[in-house]
Amino acid sequence: MAKPASQQLRIIGGQWRSRRLRFPAIDGLRPTLDRVRETLFNWLQFDVEGARVLDAFAGSGALGFEALSRGAKEVVFLEKNPSAAVQLKENLQTLGARNAQIWAGDALNWLKQNPEPYDLVFLDPPFGLKLLQPAIDSLTLLPGALVYVEHETGLQLQLPPNWQELKQKQTKEFCFRLFQVEAG
């Protein structure tokens, strides 16, 4: 059976609550599940409004669109897959969002060349490609920044010593965690 040409995700909260956005059916592209996004944005309820957000490995853009819907000042989406990047642009136009930009290219290269600090970073790369550790190692963050990390269960990471884990949940397949960068 052939895969559909596109799929949909639903924005959970904020000004675009219940809006549906399309994303391409691409192997390895797995939008963060609704229940996980709901948990994450409950964790972040006081930290999104006015934040500068980086959605590395954006894919469907589920996390970045959710942040925009909830009042983020700016979101930068990084997406390597050309058709996913085009769909992100179309979705921004559909929503009328002007406070976001999409960089269509390799997220690891972008992180190395753009050491800008963000208030909130989403790191949810495709599983099994060993992209998460290099992304963590490439981040430049100021104290107080929040980092959301989603990865396969059992993956061992070398985290910077100034990252304090605030929240964590795990399923059989994956783990999602929220960190805050401390001074030091």
Rank of each mutant, 00 (worst) to 15 (best):
L88W: 03
W16F: 07
D124C: 14
V147Y: 14
F41W: 02
L63V: 11
I26M: 09
L132E: 01
D34G: 05
F57P: 08
W16I: 02
S83D: 09
L29V: 06
W103L: 07
T94V: 11
Y148D: 03
E74A: 14
P82G: 06
D119E: 00
S69N: 05
G14R: 12
G96L: 11
L88E: 00
G59I: 10
L142F: 12
L9C: 00
L63W: 04
S18Q: 11
L33P: 14
E38F: 10
I11T: 02
L120E: 05
L54E: 01
P31I: 15
A51S: 06
N114R: 09
L141P: 01
Y148W: 07
L146H: 02
Q93P: 00
L54Q: 05
D27F: 14
L44A: 06
L142H: 13
E150V: 07
Q8S: 07
S69G: 05
L54Y: 09
L142R: 11
R52H: 01
W110I: 09
L68S: 04
L68Q: 01
V36H: 09
L141I: 09
N99R: 12
I11P: 01
E38A: 06
P117S: 14
L88N: 02
E38M: 08
L63I: 03
F127R: 13
R10K: 15
K130E: 03
W16C: 03
V53T: 10
A97G: 09
V48R: 15
P125T: 12
A67Y: 09
T94M: 04
L120P: 03
V76Q: 12
N99H: 10
R19F: 05
P115N: 08
L142K: 13
G128H: 08
D47H: 15
D34T: 15
R19N: 15
P143D: 02
R52S: 00
D137R: 07
G128P: 04
G71A: 07
W43N: 05
D137G: 08
K130N: 12
G144R: 15
L132C: 02
P134W: 14
Q87I: 04
P143I: 07
Q45G: 00
L29F: 10
T39S: 09
A85V: 12
F23N: 00
